[in-house]
Structure formats: C-alpha cells, structure tokens
Design a protein around this nucleic acid. Structure first.
Length: 617
DNA sequence: GCAAGGTC
C-alpha cells in the first residue's frame, strides 16, 4: 500500500479526489490502492529546554546548547497547564499505523522548506524507515497533480532542503530561547522579556518610528492660493513655492493681480498640460495585502482577518489563505470566467461581474512563475449564505478584488494648469474617463491630495482670467506616521529592501521578515508581552517595549539583516554547503548574545505594573 | 514563562 501524506487535510482531499479515492476514514481517505493522510502543519516541534535537563530559568544553564535536539508533540495550553495537543497526538497515531503498513510513502507536503520539515520531523519522530518519494507541485489543479505524480522525485533529492529547514529551526531556538532567558533573568526576572530573530526587529521598527515621530519638530511654512475664474467655473491654484515666513508669503500675496486689486484679467495661463494616464488593475490578494486592506477598510487586526479567512476557507468559500503570492497560473486562470459569473448576483458588484462576462480579461495577475507554494486568494465559486457581517466583508474583499484584478485599466486625465499672477501658481486636477476596475468598489482614491481640484475647466495657453480671490495658507510639515497594522505588515514584507549589502538584500528579497502565515502571530506576541499596545489604529510601544528596544537596538538580533544573513546561508546549505559550519557560527553567536544580554539587562528597569506576570503569560 | 514555523 502506498501512503500519501499532505501538509493539511484540504490538500489530501484534493489529491484523493483526483485519484478517485473516496472512502473516508478517521484521519485519512482510502481508495484505488492508495491511502491519503495529512498533518495539520507542524505536528512536532523542537523540545523545550527542560527536556534537555535545563530546569527552571537559571543563569547557570546559559547558554543552553543541546548536544542533540529532540522533537516533541505540539503543545496546547489548557487550565491544567501545557499539554500535548490531543488532536495532534491522535493524527500522529493515524499516520504511524499507516506508515507501518506502507510499502512506500509519497510526500505531498507543501513544496518548500517548511513543507519538507513538516514531513521529515514526523518521519524521524516515528522512527520510520520506509522509502519515500517527493511530490513537488505548486498548483493543485487536477492536471498539475497528475503531472506531479508522473514526475515523483527521489526523497533524497530534498535532503539538503531538509538540512536548511532544520538549521533554520534550531537557530531560531538557540538564539530565541537563550536571548529571552538572558534578558529576562538579568533584568530581575520579573517578566518574560522575549527576543527573537523576527519579533525583535519588528519591535525595533515600531519603537524607532515612535521615537522619530515623538521627536519630530513640525516646521510651519506658507503657501499662497488664488482662485481664477473661467466663465463662471472657479478653480484653485497654489503657489509653486513654499515660503518659510509669513512675510515672504505676504509679499507674494500682495503681488497677486486679483480683481479687487484692480486687475480684471490678472491671471495669465502660461501652460496647460493634459496627460491621459492608464492605471492598471491591482493584483489579486495574498494574505498580507488582504490583511492590510481589511485593516484600512474595516479596522480588523491582522489576526482577526486571518481567523475570518480560515473560517471562510474551512467553509470552502475561498482558496488557501496563507499564501504569499498575488498571482495565479494559466490553469487556474482558465477557471476564472466561471468564478466571475458566480458573482453576477452579488448585491454590491454583481453588475460589474455581468459587465465582465465575455470581456477580454486583464492578465496582470496571471504568471505561473510567480506562484510559490500557493496561488493568490480567490473565491472558490461556492455561494455563501448567512455569513456574519465581518465574514461577509472579508469575503467581499476577496471576490471584489478578483473582479478588479481581471477588469480593464482605469483611464484618467491628469491636468496641470500653470498660471502667472505676480508669482507662479499651479492648479492640478484628475478626471476619470473610464473607471475600468475602479468601478467595482467605486471608492475614492486613497492618495488624493487635499489641494486637488475635482475637475478643471478647459483653458488654453495665453488666456487671461480674472482672479476672484486669494489667500495665504499656513501649513506644517508632518512626521512619518506611527505604524498601524496595515503599514507594519507592509514594512515587514519589504524589510531588507534597504540593506546596503547586496547579497543580504538579495537573500531577503522574496521573504522580508517573518512569513505570511506568522506575521499576525508576531504582532500578537508583541502585544502579549506588553511591549506594544493598540492605541486607536496605531501600534505604540509601552515603557517596557521602549526599554527592551534601548537595550538591544544596536545588537544583531534587532536588525532585519540577521534574517538576510541566515537566508543567504540557508540557501547555500540547500545547494550543498556545510551544515556544521553554519551551526558552529550560530553557537558562537548564541554564546556572544547571551553573555552580552546578561550584562545589558542589568540596566533595564521594567515598570512592574506593566510587566506580564511570569506565571500567567 | 522562552523562538519561529505551520495549521485546525
């Protein structure tokens, strides 16, 4: 009997369906001589410190460098403390008995580093010795699955991928566990002060932005505005220059040749520019872009959006949500017209779905090369009913974005009128000619400047217009805004783009900090530690968060570069480089950061009222 | 009491 193991039930079901297997058992599906089972993501994790004999939190144990890592069943918190997750234990038993009977295992976990790790941890934990082959596909259409099975790879082809995954996992453990205990203990052991490769640079970003924002001194500057009149249609033009003092602005103001000042035609049209601009439709959503949109539109946290999406996914209304790709392959694209048709009765944008029927669809989001483990989020075509308002809102963002993404360009005309009236003034305006994809939600543009005219009258170069009013505008320079969930998610995604070292920048270019599946959890961790709080929509550091930041801000653990560095080395390991060399470097770094923090932490004063309790964290 | 990674 051949056993196929997938990363999650939905994938196992898809593969079983393609094979025509449909006998549902407890924890697996059977048929056609195959057995299809699944994990639930990582079932196993690196064991906690006490399982290597490092009891309690004790400086004597530091740095903890287990000679050999152990695996343990994923834990869950209950009122009786932390225990093995019973559903995981049960599924592992199922997998064990299937592996025991198997002649061959086919590994169908996601095609990536973590997918490989999920299987190997199970395989080694169960001490399984059966031969295994690897299914490596990045799309789960019937054809892709069949093609993948015709092209199964030898399991050992992925040994180096497993090595890199295992190294990632061990390194995060070594650095995270040791740094956390070192800082917590040296600062008086009154609170859990966690540190990690991803959470600490994230905290640093929030803190440094907060401090920059707090220390920002706004500068007042002045502009002059005039209101020219073209046959009764009045518009607004702003001085091309900003003035540092009110006096300078007043001088310009006084030079304006307005009607009241005795100039009936004192506004001279120097130049008229009208450029049509095509605005292509937005890409389909990946998890992060959807979390950002839901945060902007509805104020949902990253965690809420992920949880709502998981529900929609389990109800088979949307495709796999934890994707980092905003593209689909040609095979999925072939099904898009049918998906669009399904939205024709939608109360909000059914009309737009009808308009798209038979139209030529934009292929901007179609690019098989940019589909990684999973493609962009799409509705499945199932019709939802009785969704809660929040679920409906998220579903609509998915379905609406699909309509936008395959819609035509939005065509605008951007007009700029340059005027002379004592000084130079510019009026700008944007007119939408063809709404295209913007018709779906009919939102006004988010980046609309406040001084922009909705529409501008037709004027010609050389024309003279009466200036009916003028004013001095007092304005202030603004600091970079504090992070909110949307801007932080974006910043995590693009983290590393400004790294000077070209190799490190390259190593991070497709990843950023964290992964789509974990970013919401990282934000929640910082909240749970009382490092940050939500203040309206903003994420603001607490005294504790700022204190930790001050202590570690110059350390590698607080820099996004650390991830870039690791990614570069992990990629080398995947292509065959030495594992032990990297492991030794990590051990060396662990010793260094641990002793550094044991010193630095002494200077840290955690406000007791703010600190998370040690026992109830 | 601790990381980051995956998922129900």
């Amino acid at each position: 009997m051949k056993v196929i193991i997938a990363e999650k039930p939905s994938v196992a079901r898809e593969i079983a369906r393609v094979f025509g297997a449909n006998t549902k058992k407890n924890g697996y599906i059977e048929g056609k001589g195959f057995t299809f089972t699944w994990a639930f993501g990582h079932l196993l994790q690196l064991a906690a410190p006490q399982e290597y004999g490092y009891y309690g939190w004790n400086i004597q144990n530091l740095p903890m460098l287990p000679p050999k890592f152990k695996l343990s069943i994923r834990k869950v918190k209950t009122k009786d403390g932390v225990v093995d997750d019973p559903s995981v234990k049960k599924q592992l038993d199922v997998i064990k008995s299937l592996f025991d009977e198997a002649t061959e295992i086919i590994v169908a976990t996601d095609a990536g580093r973590e997918g490989e790790l999920i299987f190997r941890y199970i395989y080694y934990y169960l001490k399984c010795k059966k031969p295994f082959k690897r299914l490596w596909i990045s799309s789960q259409t019937d054809e892709a699955i069949k093609e993948g099975f015709r092209n199964l790879k030898p399991g050992s082809d992925y040994d180096t991928l497993f090595n890199s995954a295992h190294c990632r996992s061990q390194s995060d453990w070594l650095v995270g566990m040791n740094a956390t205990q070192a800082l917590s203990l040296s600062s008086g052991n009154r609170a859990v002060l966690s540190l990690g490769r991803v959470q600490t640079p994230t905290l640093a970003m929030i803190c440094s932005r907060f401090i920059e924002n707090r220390n920002f001194v706004p500068q007042t500057y002045y502009q002059v505005s005039i209101h020219p009149d073209k046959d009764g249609q009045v518009f607004k033009a702003i001085s091309t220059e900003n003035y540092a003092t009110k006096e300078e602005a007043e001088a310009v103001f006084n030079q304006v040749q307005d009607v009241e000042g005795g100039f009936p035609q004192g506004g001279h049209v120097l130049q008229v520019e009208a450029k049509p601009r095509k605005e292509p439709p937005p890409l389909l959503h990946d998890l992060s872009s959807l979390q950002q949109e839901a945060n902007k539109r509805k104020g949902f946290t990253a965690d809420q959006t992920l949880s709502i999406l998981q529900n929609l996914y389990e109800s088979k209304l949307v495709t796999y949500p934890r994707t980092g790709s905003r593209y689909i392959g040609d095979d999925v694209f072939a099904g898009v017209p049918a998906l669009i048709e399904k939205q024709e009765l939608h109360p909000l944008f059914g009309k737009q779905a009808q308009a798209l029927a038979g139209a030529k669809l934009s292929k901007r989001s179609v690019n098989a090369k940019k589909v990684t483990d999973h493609h962009a989020i799409l509705p499945t075509g199932e019709t939802p009913n009785h969704l809660s308002p929040d679920h409906q809102a998220v579903f609509d963002m998915v379905a609406g974005r699909m309509l936008e993404a395959f819609h035509q360009d939005c065509i605008k005309e951007i007009t700029k009128i340059t005027m002379q009236s004592g000084a130079k003034f510019i009026a700008s305006g944007t007119v939408i000619h063809t709404a295209g994809w913007r018709a779906v939600f009919n939102d006004k543009e988010d980046d609309k400047k406040d001084e922009e005219n909705a529409t501008l009258p037709k004027v010609t170069q050389g024309e003279n217009l009466p200036v009916t009013a003028k004013a001095i505008l007092e304005k202030q320079t603004k600091p970079k805004p504090l992070y909110n969930e949307a801007s932080l998610l974006k910043a995590l995604e693009t983290a590393g783009k400004e790294i000077d070292d070209e190799e490190l920048r390259y190593a991070m270019k497709d990843s950023g900090l964290g992964t789509p599946a974990t970013r919401a959890a990282i934000i929640e961790t910082l909240l749970k530690r009382n490092y940050i709080i939500r203040e309206k929509k903003n994420l603001v550091p607490t005294q504790t968060g700022l204190g930790v930041y001050e202590v570690v801000k110059n350390q590698q653990i607080a820099q996004a570069e650390l991830t870039g560095n690791w990614e570069k080395r992990l990629e080398e390991i995947r292509s065959g480089a030495s594992v032990t060399e990297f492991q030794e470097e990590i051990k060396t770094y662990t010793r260094a950061i641990t002793s550094e923090l044991l010193n630095l932490g002494k200077a840290l004063n955690i406000p007791v009222a703010e600190a998370t309790s040690k026992t109830n964290a």
